[in-house]
Nucleic acid binder design. Structure first.
Lengths: 195, 195
DNA sequence: ATATTCATGTAACAAGTTACATGATTAG
DNA sequence: CTAATCATGTAACTTGTTACATGAATAT
């Protein structure tokens, strides 16, 4: 029920095609809502038939035609209504955490590899967030930007995404250390299991 | 596909009923995987028919009978196999963030109220995490526990849940400040929109 | 030559949510 | 006397995922 509003919120930044949104839902909005392109196309169709967004077909010569979507007044009202309503609790689904829960069942080295891979991904993501932030700030300091901009929402959610990923980095690094210390201890003749 | 493994991982802590798991999936496991009781009952049935868990009916006099589930060897193997496989990216769904994305469309005071409510919830959650941590540590220091315990997984995921919520607190507080500063500025005669 | 980007879509399937139902027990 | 806890389940519905398909343009 609320991919709907995530899409409407994304359209606050102006007209976008399904394809555009698919990209947006993989960077800025991916901090707090994710979706596949297929879901977006489906949702956009629905929103259009319900009159919450309007579609405009753009003819293109060297590219397939595209439909650009924008918020209607009704859509904006619906979004406002939703926004004032208490949010349901956050849901997180992280397979890596399930695997870590079971870490004691498997080879620590294999787990270390998974953690390293995850670290790389997160660092890429953080780099993208940082570029997006620089682009938003456009030379201003954060303090200036925060009081002066007319749209503070996207910046605030971006900052939440950033700190989430930074915390993730710290946790992964710490976890690698802990697993190494345990593996080390298990390998040491003097400190093995039976003590 | 992987509520399945989240359930198996939860059963590493020993036998549990569907009802037990429903509670667990609302505290410790809720850091990284969530599910409704209905989903759990469905999943447990499936796991039992697939032989990954075994059910044992416990007759009770003053309570409805219950089925206690435990991991089978096959189940444990399946979990190990899953654990060694690369995790898919984390998905987060947070309605509050969608609402914050649209914060510039609505009354800042209403948003402040939503943020305060969220803060209270998080603080409750943190308190529960802290109790669970104390219970795990059982008098040891963290450093002692981390090398000595035979199951470090649940502690590591709990710590990730904790830092997630702590970061959440910081972000909510900061966001309340930012919105207050902006509202203040907008209300001040000298600093209104047209400047 | 090959991969990636642009741009959309259908269909089948899997996972997750909500509403409802039952029914005794114990705590406030 | 009322609410919460224990303990499970069915059925209907909504979301979300995966696989597949098309087809030109540009970048490597």
């Amino acid at each position: 029920m609320s991919l709907k509003y995530a899409v409407l919120a994304a359209l606050l930044n102006g007209e976008a095609s399904g394809y555009d949104l698919a990209k947006v839902f993989d960077v800025s909005v991916a901090n707090f809502w994710s979706s596949t392109p297929q879901q977006l196309y489906r949702e956009l169709d629905r929103l259009a038939t319900d009159g919450l967004v309007q579609a405009r077909v753009v003819q293109q010569e060297r590219r397939p035609n595209k439909r650009m979507f924008s918020l209607t007044g009704t859509g904006r009202d619906a979004l406002r209504g939703f926004t004032l309503t208490p949010p349901r609790p956050t849901t997180i689904r992280d397979e890596l955490m399930v695997k870590i829960q079971a870490v004691d069942e498997v080879d620590p080295d294999a787990m270390r590899a998974l953690l390293e891979e995850r670290l790389e991904r997160i660092r890429d993501k953080l780099a993208r967030y940082e570029r997006l932030r620089d682009h938003m700030l456009d030379g201003s300091t954060e303090d200036e930007y925060l009081v002066e901009t007319d749209q503070v929402g996207p910046y605030l959610t971006l900052m939440r995404g950033r700190s989430f990923e930074e915390e993730n980095v710290r946790w992964c690094e710490r976890t690698i250390e802990v697993l190494a210390a345990r593996a080390d201890r298990a390998a040491r003749p003097g400190g093995a299991e039976g003590d």
